[in-house]
Amino acid sequence: MKCNHIQNKLIGFLENSLSEVANSEVKEHLKSCTNCNKELEDVKSFLNILDNQKTEIPSNNLRDNFNKMLASEMANASPKVIPLKPQQDWKSYLKVAASIVIVIGAFLFGKHQSNITKIASVKNEHKEQVLALLENTSASKRILAVTNAEEFTKKDTKIIEALINRLFFDKNANVRSAAAETLAKFSSEIIVRDALIKALETDKNTTVQIELIQILAKIQEKRAIESMKKLLENEETPQYVKQQVELNLPSLL
């Protein structure tokens, strides 16, 4: 063990790089141990061989050649580098552009979406306004609401129901007749047709009656023939209303 320990330090001992304690320890041991002396001789001769070995120095040609090669390589590589750079820029621009597009797109989409809801809500608000106006105490305002109701589609059953309500129950004849006129535009709906026929039977105001007779003839509602005939038979019906029936009835027959 001791010899191993000493032998590990032999190179250090020969190169004088050991601490003084270790140095004297090695010296002491070498005086007594022949094995280690032999080892020391081996290490000495190995080191001598290393020292005597001549260091190979590369020729100047090598450096020149290398520089030449490097230059040529750089010359070869540089055209490739140049297109690479803009390509990278183009890509990054694309990325930036894409992200901008996405952001703006998202913004516009959101805006559009909110516009849609806004339009919808405005329309809804408008609908509520019209519905409220239909109940206004002013007859002129109700007429305004009735004519405004034209712009709604037949899907707005609330509007149609409110108009039918006006047709039957409004105290003002002008409102009733305006309601009839607006309802005529929704005449594809069966409830509208039913309401118009029913109103002809119940309304006592001659202006409204005449309006209804003309509308029913215009929308070619054959089921109104019976109600019209009833009006003709009714003694209370004024002559001028009967005249209107006589004028319009043939177009339904």
């Binding site: 002013s138 002129s140 305002k141 007429i143 004519t147 002008n174 001659t206």
Partner: peptide, 11 residues
């Protein structure tokens, strides 16, 4: 100009 004017008569 506030709201509509309606004048109607039958005969």
């Amino acid at each position: 100009q506030t709201s509509p004017i309606t004048i109607s008569s039958s005969v």
